[in-house]
Design a protein around this nucleic acid. Structure first.
Lengths: 130, 130
DNA sequence: AATTAAATTTATACTAAGTCTAAATACTAC
DNA sequence: GTAGTATTTAGACTTAGTATAAATTTAATT
């Protein structure tokens, strides 16, 4: 682990991701950077996203779509995806420790981490004319 | 939903996936089919895997790698991936219903399904010289 | 059994997301 | 200021998967 090196590009990308209410893909990040007057090389954006992810400053979300999404919230949390509209919301309740212990015991693994993606239908899609 | 139509190709692919102890990718499935003397078009394998998945005969696993994996076990279950060796094991304990209810209440979603991928270190990697 | 219609397979072109590479640029330490 | 390292850039390349159009198979109708 070496010292954190936030270049202009990395800083701009970090700021952008942290300012997002949603969970943009790399392509969406590039688009928003361009709208803010930045124009970085394609590879630089991917490089920086990986660097920032490795540094623990942002999170990469793999929600089962083709592209990864990025999240400026670094606390441990999960996500729920609406099957109808594709919207993604945060889930802050952690899986019960009992369950994790049970899984560790049954599988003989040291469990370090879990990714959970819930799928369902969001409030707006349930009540279309509210 | 129309009647199930298991062509020669689909049947061979279903048989193969069901006979696997592991969770092969589409590329691995093609390779194993070839070893069994089958030679199907590239697109047919993808088509068939989707067909079989939609029919509920196999499952598509998105474990955060670049390629999907396929699983002949159709009961509801989850997976745990070893960070060291990449091995994937089954997790048969379901997440506690209380937790799911809590998530549904907090997010205002109807929760239909959850995908859970645990990450950790498997027994063999923990005890390298056993 | 021959004819038509529908579904499926095949081969191949294409797309999307991301990685790799080599040259150019920027930063750091002396 | 110069040498050395790290980063950015542009663009080629890779991987996984989708789309398309022609050929083949299967099923239904007569």
């Amino acid at each position: 682990m070496s010292r954190l090196n936030l270049t202009t590009q990395r800083k701009a990308i970090l700021d952008l991701v942290q300012s997002c209410e949603d969970h943009p893909t790399a392509a969406e990040i590039m688009e928003r950077l361009r709208m803010n007057g930045h124009q970085f090389a394609y590879g630089t954006v991917y490089n920086s996203l990986r660097y920032l992810t490795d540094a623990g400053l942002i999170r990469e979300l793999k929600l089962g779509e083709t592209a990864s999404r990025y999240d400026g919230r670094t606390e441990d949390h999960y996500h729920i995806v609406c099957k109808k509209c594709g919207r993604v919301d945060e889930v802050l309740s952690a899986p019960p420790a009992d369950w994790i212990r049970e899984v560790a015991a049954k599988t003989n693994y040291d469990v370090h981490h879990s990714q959970v993606v819930f799928e369902g239908v969001c409030y707006s899609c349930k009540h279309p004319n509210a």
